[in-house]
Amino acid sequence: MLELQHIGFKTEEGKDILKDISLKISDRFVAVTGPNGGGKSTLAKVIAGIYRPTSGRIIFDGQDITDMSITDRAKLGVSYAFQQPVRFKGLRVGDLLKLSMGKSMKMRDACDYLSEVGLCARDYIDRELNDSLSGGELKRIEIATILARGTKLSIFDEPEAGIDLWSFQNLIRVFQKMYEHTKGSILIISHQERILNIADTIIVIKDGRVERCDSRSAVLPELLGSADGNTEFCSTLLDKNQEVTRSE
């Protein structure tokens, strides 16, 4: 469904962030992981059209979308959830959901999507997307907008970042449910073992390259096993995993 052919991305200062990345993504749930600064978020932005790759092609459903705008990619069926959701003065939760659905929205629809992420539509639909909402609330609303779009490809950039533990527990459930119901593909950037645990395929990106791309059963034990090797990424993963397990 999504094919990346030799994708490279260089910053204006000439730093190579992505180096010759080639991937085929057709599974229902693909997790991208790897150390911070390895290029994961840049890759997600390249797919969504926020960054233009400096080399390579992106093929989506057989169509070359490399030179397409963010808007055109969105219309074709690419959704992108921000790692840090954007705040708007004046725009309300209901407005964003309505825009996500691309048509008129009934209270029932808003209720469907917001309840999925543990929010009550009645309390939230008229709330402004401003500083009065917590990071966790914004994150859940961001996910609801992706659910409301229901596109062929949904990209989530570290959905667990910046949310409280309660939200995190629910987040896992949201993704489990999404996995069961999605008709397209979910591409999720995450450090969390519990998210990686739902994935069909795990891709490890390090230093701008694909270090590993294989089934979960092949990659996950390696990642957890190497946690003892003191890599920053994997010890973080283990710590967080234990923290979540303890709280349950």
């Binding site: 969504a48 926020i50 705008s69 963010i70 808007t71 969105a74 219309k75 690419v78 959704s79 992108y80 921000f82 959701p85 954007v86 708007f88 964003l96 825009l99 996500s100 691309g102 907008t145 779009r149």
Partner: peptide, 10 residues
């Protein structure tokens, strides 16, 4: 970012 967010919605 505000523009980009709404553009990712189409």
């Amino acid at each position: 970012d505000q523009l980009i967010k709404l553009m990712t919605l189409g």
